[in-house]
Write a protein that binds this DNA or RNA. Structure first.
Lengths: 345, 345
DNA sequence: AAGTCCTTTGGGAGCGCTCCCAGACGTGAT
DNA sequence: ATCACGTCTGGGAGCGCTCCCAAAGGACTT
């Protein structure tokens, strides 16, 4: 009899059991940390596992147990380019860190078009993953509702609206914006303008709300001519700031809802002969690479991306765990932001 | 009798077979595109699949077939921060694109420390994936050799040395550097300096070689005082350019082996009262976000990241396919770079 | 001494698929 | 009519695990 096993014959549960002189069930119990195993037996099994270098077969486990030990991280492709890169990799890093101690696998899925979305939807519906992490979904994305319907654990990064039904992890956009604007006011600026993101995005609404709140708190006038709607792109920032300058040429500070827009603003200010920060102070949002390398370096609101990633993973794992135990562990989290002060303000 | 199936009872192969009035084997054959199925039967089965919304169970398939339909993308954590971000996400995007038509899954693994590396090594040894994509491995990383030993298909992004034994996909670093320097010379610069990466990295050696080659071709002197060793960081760029300026205050161009170093160089040049590009022309490498947002925008050598990712996936899939068929399909690829001209040169 | 309960254990019965063998059927040659 | 050969098909065996039931044994009680 030759050893079968079509490739790199790894030991199986059965072999470990035989080696340790116990039954299959017992080894399984030891591996899965079930109670009801005597210390003596447990030790013997653990030794057998170590000596044989046994590693459970994931596919077999998944098949038998009906779970997959994998979660998917879904990233809409469009966002990847737009949102400054740190967002993307920061979140991944956090998620990965949190998963390192688990034996959950991280499945990366970029969704570029409706066809791929449908494919993923089907994939998820077939229960190929235990949970889903959705990065920066749009308000009209059908995926969250689909997941809800098939009772697939999910966590969003960011909210689609004020009363997001799906568990999420977000940063305190309102508070971050408010702090930024308070900072500008604290530096003596009085004509503080803002360039928002697209206002159909909740994140943009929040940052605008923070701006308004800061002005109100400081007792400053809220001049609508100081508010311009942008779209998170550099070109959008350019356009918006030109608008602002034409309406209120006396503005002495601009709070941009993203660093990328701030880069556009900076360029236009230079063209118009205004110095930063002497004539116009500038603050951005995201603390991206762009901010650090601008001239002068841009003060910006930092999101705790890595921590957000970790939280997302944690919240998702709890949800999965809870579902298994028949509970309903759904929670969300909002993390604080931090103002990174640089020379632009 | 109620329907069993512990969750969201998806149809199984068996049920499809019953529905179509054929045997299990036949359905399996249709799904896997095997020959020897009459058109009539095939059509009937396909219809049954469509009507029942059948999706094969991956775990079962993996268990029965001994393959996993998944490949791992491994990223050493250290690199994530260092290498400008576009690298990371560009490659991922390409890989993902190429995999979209396959039903291969992409597993993302960040490796932060030796412990995690060992864990991954074990994971791979247990054949939990069909292949591995390694992003920017160091010369002393034991992973490639391990993979070689256990005959696990693998592809590297970048080479560790001139005669890389493991299949790789790289960009033409030498050619890119050469083009960049030729461009500087073409603009009338004669004292062209370079700041290299750490010279124990092959990529740094190549870019230096390209620099040298361009000078030689143009018949310019190769003054060692015009070469400074950097480390791909901004601070390293600062230090290196100060060194260069002290040795050759008359330099009129600098080719930096990375954009990030160029950012440091730019700052030092400004401090020293030198204008870019009037006094000193500047070219970087990577075409990262930093390059676009520098003042003036930085001319830089672009790597076709997305295409590299696609190639990596393709090369790996061929290798996996080949191995299945008993062949040895190992190939590597070197892709061309492109000089993106901006105001800095 | 018999009964009760709890802890610990072994192993059967699948999970849903692929692989492969044997059988059914058809075609053409003898 | 018989045989050989090819094409197509059904279904058994098994992948390595988890789940769960029943049995074995020990500690107490009555």
């Amino acid at each position: 009899m030759t050893v079968s096993g079509r490739r790199g014959q790894r030991p199986t549960l059965e072999q470990v059991a035989a080696y340790a002189g116990v039954g299959r069930g017992t080894v399984s119990r030891v591996i899965n940390g079930a109670a009801n195993v005597s210390d003596q037996t447990r030790t013997a099994v653990q030794q057998a596992i170590a000596e044989l270098g046994y590693v459970p077969n994931r596919a077999a486990r998944a098949l038998a147990a009906g779970s997959t030990d994998a979660i998917a991280l879904v990233i809409p492709e469009a966002e990847t380019r737009l949102f400054a890169e740190p967002y993307f990799s920061g979140i991944i890093r956090g998620v990965s860190t949190e998963l390192a101690d688990t034996d959950m696998q991280l499945l990366l899925t970029l969704i570029r078009n409706p066809k791929e979305r449908d494919r993923f939807a089907q994939y998820v519906a077939a229960h190929r993953v235990d949970g889903v992490l959705l990065v920066s979904v749009h308000a009209d994305d059908p995926l969250p509702d689909l997941l809800e319907r098939i009772e697939m654990p999910a966590v969003l990064s960011g909210r689609r609206s004020g009363d997001e039904p799906v568990p999420y992890v977000d940063c305190d956009n309102t508070g971050g914006a408010q702090t930024a604007v308070e900072h500008l006011i604290g530096r003596g600026r009085r004509a503080v303008a803002t360039i928002t993101g697209p206002l159909d995005m909740y994140v943009a609404q929040c940052r605008l709300e923070g701006y308004r709140h800061a002005l109100r708190t400081a007792g400053l006038e809220e001049d609508e001519r100081l508010v311009a709607v942008g779209d998170f792109t550099e070109e959008g920032g350019r356009r918006a700031v030109r608008e602002l300058l034409s309406r209120r040429p006396d503005l002495d500070a601009v709070f941009c809802a993203s660093d990328v827009m701030a880069a556009g603003v900076r360029a236009v200010l230079r063209e118009s002969g205004r110095r930063v920060p002497e004539d116009v102070a500038l603050v951005g949002f995201d603390d991206s690479a762009v901010a650090r390398h601008m001239d002068p370096p841009l003060t910006s609101v930092r999101q705790p991306l890595e921590e957000m990633g970790r939280s997302m993973a944690r919240v998702l794992l709890e949800q999965i765990e809870g579902r298994k135990a028949g509970r309903d562990d759904r929670s969300s989290r909002v993390l604080p932001t931090e103002l990174i002060r640089r020379a632009s303000s």
